[in-house]
């Protein structure tokens, strides 16, 4: 809608007025400046502090002449990362594979079960206790049993990672499916929508922001599940994921390699979080409160 020109000044409000020093509000100027500084600090500060921490780490090792089999300096860790890159990247690939497969199964299983729960209150009452029990029982205490009962090591790892990752997807999606606007639900009834139409046109879109919130958590948890499961599975198998490399390096007192593998896991976790956040942002930016910029 077009705004009328201001009748008092004849000025179009869309154009900035000529600078009249008496019109400058020092309070507002100060707030605007603070906002600009904050915008820069948001990415600069973590970088500076991170660099400082690495530098301090390096200095502490050098000043105290700490042997590298106790605490390697950052330089040595990076060097090891580069020298062992073939070995470590191969392991990273295996860990990633398990993580993403588990995440995929968690999404399919979590959303599928949530849809089932949304269709039938009785199904939810009957099965949600199992989901909660699976969630609250620490995976390290279930994993040994899983590796006894399941021959295939890959399937065992996958199952562990899945158990850890699927609950946030299930819980969030269930909540989302139920949180559809009640007037829109009435409208669906009035227009005689089928169950399926109601699910596709109302419940699933309503659940999308909740699901994506669950996915962000599940992504990190799938990685944790994959790593923890591999620890429990031990070195006895054919496994050679990053957790296996850390264990192996530990036995050999190859501390720099332990650090290198650890850093790779951390970076992977951050990247997964970044990727899921990006997916959520792209999916919601057109319409959802969480992704909108306030003016």
């Amino acid at each position: 809608m077009a705004l009328a020109d201001d009748p008092r000044t004849g000025m179009n409000p869309a154009q900035p007025p000529a600078m009249d020093p008496s019109l400058i509000d020092p309070e507002e100027e100060r707030i605007a400046r603070a906002k600009r500084i904050e915008g820069t600090a948001k990415w600069l500060l973590p970088l500076v502090v991170m660099a400082l921490a690495v530098w301090l780490w390096d200095r502490v090792v050098a000043w105290n002449e700490i042997p590298h089999y106790v605490l390697p300096g950052p330089g040595l860790v990076v060097e090891t990362l580069w020298e062992d890159r073939a070995l470590l990247l191969g392991s990273l690939w295996i860990t990633l594979k398990i993580t993403f497969m588990a995440l995929a199964v968690a999404v399919i299983g979590g959303v599928g079960l949530a849809v089932l729960f949304a269709q039938s209150r009785f199904a939810e009452m009957s099965f949600s206790p199992f989901a909660v029990i699976l969630q609250v029982t620490p995976i390290v205490s279930i994993a040994p049993l899983i590796f006894i009962y399941i021959e295939n090591r890959l399937v065992g790892l996958l199952l562990c990672a899945w158990i850890v990752a699927f609950f946030p997807v299930l819980a969030n999606t269930t909540l989302g499916l139920k949180s559809a606007d009640h007037n829109l639900r009435d409208l669906m009834t009035i227009y005689r929508a089928t169950r399926w139409q109601r699910l596709i046109h109302l419940q699933l879109p309503s659940a999308l922001p909740y699901f994506l919130g669950g996915l962000k958590i599940a992504g990190g948890l799938a990685l944790i599940g994959a790593v923890v499961a591999e620890y429990v599975a031990g070195t006895g198998g054919i496994g050679s994921g990053l957790a296996f490399r850390i264990l192996e390096a530990g036995y050999r007192l190859n501390i720099p390699r332990m650090f290198a593998a650890l850093i790779l896991i951390a970076i992977t976790g951050v990247l997964i979080y970044g990727a899921t956040s990006l997916i959520a942002h792209l999916a919601l930016r057109r319409w959802h409160e969480s992704a909108l910029k306030r003016e």
Binding site: Y191, A193, P205, L208
Partner: peptide
């Protein structure tokens, strides 16, 4: 046709697709 106290639109759909709903169903 029904109009509620709130606009009761689907926030994820454009104006056109919101109005399409009864036909879509």
């Amino acid at each position: 046709g029904v109009v509620f106290q709130e606009p009761t639109l689907m926030p994820w759909a454009t104006v056109e697709r919101n109005v399409w709903l009864p036909f879509r169903l």
